[in-house]
Amino acid sequence: MKGGIRKVFAYMVRYRAAGLFLFIFCLLTLVTLVNPTFLEWQNLRDIAVQAAPICIISCGLMLVLVTGEIDISVGSMMGLLAACMGAMASLSRGNWPPGVVIPLTLGIGMLLGLLNGWLVAYAGIPSIIVTLGMLTALRGVTELIMAGTWITDLPSGIRFLGTGTWLGIPVSVWTALAVFLVSLWLVHQTAIGKRIYAIGSNPHAARLAGLPIKPIKVFVFAWTGLLTGVATLVSVPQLSVVDSGIGVGLELLVITCVVVGGTAVNGGIGNLGGVLCGVVLMTMISTVLIFMKLGEDATYWSRAIQGLFILGAILADHWISNQRKT
């Protein structure tokens, strides 16, 4: 009996998506028992809206981690992109049409990602350093652009991206779904997807096999930058105010989701299903805490729990790799 439980546990740890799914299910059951209103459409919709931008960026960041690199600049990048978008679109500043603002925002995101990727792949600087520098620098540029002011007058065209719905489901959730499907295609059905995994799995062999390591690394960073742009477009217009503090700490949340979702920090392993479960779980937690009627403490707890989850996930990975060795 004890062996049986152990086996199930081992399976759950190994097939992260299945384990997380079960965990989410248990959590849902528990919180619904305490407070049945959790399952109401409005609440689930709120969680989905909260999860959407995280999911979009996670799809990109997972690929960065799979190649064995890391990108901790996505939070600041979102801050800068929000400021750029706000400045271009706001009625009192640029007042440019959405048809111009949207591609420009995506383009800036991709360019910043390209810059990250170039510095990592071609200049040979470790990605943690490159993106740490970007984390600080981009936040600084954001503050310069915003110059201590707020943008409150986004035009309705842009606002629609954040608040509009189609068939009762918010635009951001549709976008996240589309990004997820595109990522599935990229990972499973394209040459570049296979090469991304190969590079992370064994960089030395990748070199001997003549894989284009540098262009692929640039690609994953640029792709993450582009997706950060997408996430900015569908999440920032939800707010009535754009300031220079958007996206602070976002990088940690995204990395937590990706790692909790079973992506190896050393590269080679990453599963989109697992990452999606990671995103759902991490965004649920703060809401769950509120619904568990913990009162004021709830918000304080969410950070601590986020940290515990990332440590737990890494411990689980460690445990698996030790098991494989023996």
Partner: peptide, 27 residues
């Protein structure tokens, strides 16, 4: 050995020289 431990045998053999179809958008 030029081996990618996390990939299966098919991907190991073909990574870098994948067979594509439908104008390269599908493997």
């Amino acid at each position: 050995p030029v081996i990618f431990p996390h990939l299966n045998a098919v991907d190991n053999l073909f990574v870098g020289r994948e067979h594509a179809m439908a104008c390269g958008i599908w493997l």
